[in-house]
Every structure is written in C-alpha cells, then in structure tokens.
Write a protein that binds this DNA or RNA. Structure first.
Lengths: 257, 257
DNA sequence: CAGCTCGAAAATGAATGCAAAATTTGATTG
DNA sequence: CAATCAAATTTTGCATTCATTTTCGAGCTG
C-alpha cells in the first residue's frame, strides 16, 4: 500500500535559494538565465534598450522558448521590463527607483549587520579587519577601483556572517540591479564623501567587534543612506550634462535635448 | 530626423514593481502568473506536492508554454522548486527556511518602520490607531481570526507609509511565502505570547506617534523575531504530532510514520 | 510637401510537435 | 510470494509553427 505515499523526491536543485539569484547551472534553463542575467547586468545592452530576442537566441544557440522563460524571470527580478506585444527592455532606473533600491539595500545590510553580531566568529571579524585595512590603503592611494572591490567584499562578508541564505540571495539580487550605478557613483565620489565613508567603515568595524547589533544596524542604515544620496546626486549631475537617464520613470530617454 | 531616436515607448506595464509581486493582470502571461501564484499560496496543492502541468493547463484553459513560464517565475520567487526533468513541486519550507524568512521579514518591517517615521502623516497614524484598537477588541474577545486580519493590515499600513514601492513589493513577496504557516502559527498562539504581542503593538504605535525611527526599527525587529520563535515552535509541535512538514529540507514529507 | 492611410515585413505571444528522460506497469525469476 | 527488470506510458524540455500585433515604408491626398 505504499501507493498512498504520493511523492518521495528529494529536492535536487538545492540552488542558492529563494531570494531570486539562483545558480542552477544545470538544466539549460538555469544556464541561460544566469548567462542572460550576467549579460544584462554587465551592461551589454544600454539602459532602456531593447532586448533582442532573436539575436540572443543565436548568441546562446538556443530557441526562443528557454530564452523567453529567462526573460520572464528577469522581469520578475526587476532587471528588465516586459511591454505587452512590444518586447523586453532593460529597466530604466528612475531617480526614485534608485532611492528606493538603496533604501532596501540599507534595510538588508542593516539586518545583516544585526544578525552578524549574533553569529560572527572571531576569525571572520579578523578577516573583515584585514579587508578594512587593505581598503584603507587603497583610500590613501586614491585607488578608487580597488577600494570599490574591497568595499563590496566587506559588505558581502557581513551579509555572509548573518548566516541567512535567504537574506544573502535577496541581497545579491538587489545588488545586481544597482551595480552599474553604484560603481559609477563610487567613482564620482567627492573627496569629502569618501572620507566620510571611511569613517563610517571604522564605526562599522568597531560595532562589529563589540557585537553591538542595534548599533551596527543603525550605522549600516545610515551608511547606505549616505551612499544613496551620493549616488542620486551623481546621477543628477551626469544626466544634466549628458542626459544619460531620465529623472522619472515616465519620460522616455532623451537622446538629444 | 526623428528616426535617430530609436525607441519611444513608455513603460505600459507599471506593475507593482521589482520585488517580484507584480500585478500585471493584462498580458495573459501576467494573468496566469497571478492566478497560479494565488492557487499555490492558497494551499490548493499540499506542501511538497507535485504541480501538475497538464491539469493546470486544462484548469486555466491554456497551453503548456505560458504555464511553464509562470512556473519559472514562481520558482524564482521561491514558492516552488524545479527538479530537473522531474517537474515542479510546492516548496517545502524547512524549519531553517522559516527562521530565515521571518528574519528577513523582520528586516523589511524594521526598515519600513524607520522610513514610515520619516514620511507618515497624522491621518495615517490615526488610521493605524483605529486599527490598533479594533485589534485590541478582537484580542479581548479572543477572536483570533479577525485579530489576524487586522494585524496584517496594520503591518501593511506601516509598509505603505514607508513610501517605498520596491520595499512594499518585496514585502508582499515574502509575506506570500510564509502566509499559511504564519496564519496557523497565529492560531496556535499561546495566551502568553498573544498578550506579549499586544504589548509590542502598543510600543509600535507609541514609537510611531513619536516618529522614533530607530526605536521603532528595533521594536519591529524584535516583534518579528518573537513571531518567528512562536511560528517555529508551533511548527515543531504540529509536526511532532501529525507529521505535517519535515524538519529539514532533505527528508521527504512523511505521511504515515 | 506635410500628413495620412494602407500594406508588407518583422516581431511577439501562444500552441503544437518531437526527442529524451522519468515513471509506471507487467512479466519474470529466485 | 517478494524482488527485479524491461517494455510501455507519461512527463518533461526544447524546437518549431501559427496567429496577432506592431512597426516600418511606400503611395496617396489635400
């Protein structure tokens, strides 16, 4: 009578999970999804540009079906937009979108910091300390590129120390959406803001050492809020000059104005 | 020379946004996605059960293509799992999954509370106050069902007051994942925990009135953490008794053990 | 010559078809 | 009679096909 037991399958796709950033490199669909996501995140298509179905099919050597499945998923992730009967476009992040994304990132990092204080090991703190001083070196040498990379790694380490895969996957998803903007915003960072960011990182490390969860939570929230301000200001400047992106979500990109 | 402007489309699918819970009731795909999501969230398929492609196609009166697209999206949202060559299953939430989800919900609500303090109007606070006292009435009458509903609405109001659509959409997504568990956990609430929850809600309202962002953030985090504990305890009890859900993600559901 | 309409070409959205994998069923054997 | 194995059936994954819709351009008109 074992027919009463309907299913007995053990989940084989133990992907990175629910947040949306799964690495299912098996099953062609997952492969295509990852590749297409990278393709978009890395900026191969301009902001607001069409996502050329046919060309991508040829590029990946597949038919339209799996590609379209991936498109739906990327749309759900917020990376692209689907216009009914008019195809997919790379999502234009309005100023407000950016503000919202940085706020959510702030909330996630804030949470990660709080949880990390409950779970982080001394070794992990030592790890982050090393990265911190490495980053400080890049700060002194005005090496923006490496500063950016180490900065990212520090934040990722804190997220990892939260011991929450769901949180981590969600964080990765949101980080992907603002990646380009965040990078260029960092590049455009004013001296003053850069120094301020370094001080904030000192405070982060300090609170982490003391496992001061609530405090670290606050610091990280304000740290991201400051990043938000810097990024949005940067965006406003560049678009005033070169008209790269629209201010709101409604107006189309102005090419020559 | 307007041919130099490549695209002029205004996004028509102004869905609720990037978090994953879009309401694109237009464009058949969105329709199917919403319907299928509701179908799963409302528990029409048992935990860990197969998602019958063919039957659902008949139910919705469509072919497999749009259904499969919706399945990929739901998998990305974390509602179902896709097993290579073995179809889709309703995602089994392990104890750890639940803990993680409640923690992330706590982070999101914590953030929402902080932002709400910056943006909420007096009218909205008055609104929430009314709901609060309504809920208190249900508490006194031991009316768990209505208590639950009003409770949800209060939390949604706070999220709405954060003025962050991205956050709201993400919140809705996560709320959908734990909906069933959350509900039953509330039902099983011990008297003591229920009283504690009421006190926490008093504190929430108080901090909101004073627009004390950091404080409200802390309260909401701990409020959700307590919910988490209650829910997980409840899960442990029910599964010990009736073996409804597995403790971890690896073991299959035991129907008769 | 600007603006409009109409029609062809292309792209999108969904259905169907087909090969491979998995599940079920039935027969066989120790 | 239980366990095993192999053929048949179902299911899955992807490619292909078909019906609409959109887009682009030529021709017409005022």
């Amino acid at each position: 009578m074992k027919s009463t037991i309907p299913e007995d399958g053990v989940p084989l796709t133990k992907d990175t999970g629910p947040g949306g950033a799964e690495r299912a490199e098996n099953s062609l669909h997952g492969e295509i999804l990852s590749r297409l996501r990278d393709y978009v995140v890395e900026g191969n298509i301009p902001d607001g540009g069409r996502v050329p179905e046919r060309q991508l099919c040829e590029l990946f050597g597949i038919s339209r079906t799996p590609l379209r499945e991936a498109l739906k998923v990327l749309a759900a992730e917020g990376l692209i937009e689907l216009l009914p009967n008019r195809g997919a476009r790379v999502r234009q992040l309005s100023r407000r979108d950016l503000e919202e994304l940085f706020e959510v990132m702030g909330g996630l990092e804030s949470l990660a910091g709080r949880l990390a204080c409950e779970n982080i090991t001394d070794e992990e703190i030592a790890d982050i300390e090393r990265l911190h001083y490495e980053m400080y070196g890049y700060y002194l040498h005005r090496d923006m590129h490496n500063y950016f990379l180490v900065n990212q790694r520090i934040h990722e380490k804190i997220v990892a120390a939260s011991r929450n895969e769901t949180l981590r996957a969600t964080y990765v998803n949101f980080a992907g959406r603002i990646r380009r903007v965040r990078y260029s915003a960092n590049f455009a960072r004013k001296r003053q803001r850069w120094a301020e960011a370094m001080r904030e990182h000192e405070a982060i490390l300090d609170a982490l050492r003391r496992r001061a969860g609530s405090e670290l939570s606050d610091i990280l929230f304000h740290h991201l809020r400051n990043k938000r301000t810097a990024a949005v200001e940067h965006l406003a400047e560049t678009e005033n000059g070169t008209a790269a992106a629209p201010l709101d979500g409604t107006s189309p990109p102005i090419v020559n104005a």
